[in-house]
């Protein structure tokens, strides 16, 4: 690229040939392209921006219609809300931790085996990803409920006398959500592990590092962008998750999204529900922004791949 600044004053005498027409053409072209995007933009504006903006507005009015911060103050005053937030973050941290714990070894294995074997194993990751959340939650209900598979087997084997409480409680929510969100951890992790040049590892070993040291000093740091992407994705999805806790929690585990559904559908309290939504969105976007700030350009490469 040349680095000359444009104001050279050379156009004055010849009156910039055709420049008006060319500017007009350029404007017409960008309008045409904007028109191509406009159906999508209009729909997103209608379904996402407008209603969410509306809810945002509503959240600042109490039930009598007066401007107030009551809907937000409620979060700190009512114990049930506080409990909801605590539960939500407990679930989010636990599920994120579990997906790291079991997703990392799986991704590591996928990155080390042959391309063909990895492709076959990836089917196991992708297929659940594209199976309805409802179907997978149902499967876990069948497996974990009081008279479900696990309890029947364990009792048949005489390991236990009483059925274990695995479903309709916190445990069930954690097991189900970990299963459903695991692909969101594995996909970016595998992507970033796959892009690690094996030559680095070879070099590390040639320089005398043990396999364990090579892993921790070379491989692990290089896989961090993918790990970070997976963590942020799973955590953010956990915060707003609805289907699995609603079905697996049996009414005992009230998470953020469920509280929103209850306040709006059951109690028709739009102000309170909206306030919950506003904070949820703010936390979600805040975490994503923080992630992009921390990871910088590397983040986009992980999401892109």
């Amino acid at each position: 690229m040349t680095a000359q600044v444009a104001d050279m004053g050379v156009l004055a005498d010849r009156g910039a040939l055709n420049s008006a027409r060319l500017t007009q053409d350029a404007r017409r072209e960008s309008l045409t392209f904007l028109a191509l995007c406009s159906p999508g933009l209009i729909l997103v504006g209608l379904i996402i921006v407008l209603p969410i903006g509306w809810l945002f507005w509503l959240s600042f009015f109490d039930e009598s219609g007066a401007l107030s911060g009551a809907n937000y103050a409620r979060f700190f005053e009512q114990r049930s809300y506080v409990r909801t937030f605590i539960t939500t973050f407990q679930v989010a941290f636990l599920v994120t931790g579990l997906t790291v714990l079991i997703g990392y070894p799986l991704s590591y294995m996928l990155s080390q085996i042959s391309r063909r074997a990895a492709a076959i194993c990836m089917i196991f990751v992708i297929l659940p990803f594209w199976t309805s959340v409802l179907v997978r939650t149902y499967a876990w209900l069948v497996i974990l409920q009081r008279k479900g598979l696990v309890n029947t087997w364990l009792m048949d084997l005489g390991v236990i006398d009483q059925p274990l409480p695995l479903a309709h409680n916190f445990t069930g929510v954690i097991i189900g959500m970990t299963h459903i969100l695991l692909p969101f951890m594995v996909l970016p992790l595998y992507g970033s592990m796959k892009s690690i040049d094996t030559d680095y590892l070879r070099a590390g070993m040639n320089l005398g590092a043990s396999p364990t040291a090579t892993f921790w000093q070379i491989f692990f740091p290089l896989s961090l962008p993918g790990l970070a992407a997976g963590i942020i994705m799973v955590f953010v999805l956990c915060l707003g998750f609805f289907v699995t806790p609603a079905l697996m929690g049996g009414g005992n585990v009230i998470m953020w999204a469920m509280r929103m559904e209850q306040t709006t559908s059951l109690y028709a309290n739009w102000g309170a529900g909206s306030a919950l939504g506003v904070v949820l969105l703010a936390v979600t976007l805040g975490l994503l922004a923080l992630f992009h700030r921390l990871m910088g350009a590397r983040a986009t490469s992980v999401w892109g791949g």
């Binding site: 690229m1 040349t2 680095a3 600044v5 444009a6 050279m8 010849r14 910039a16 040939l17």
Partner: peptide, 16 residues
């Protein structure tokens, strides 16, 4: 060709 001028923002690629 006469007076061909092309700028990308402040960067001049072709000058008159």
């Amino acid at each position: 060709m006469r007076g061909i001028t092309k700028r990308y923002g402040p960067v001049s690629v072709l000058a008159d």
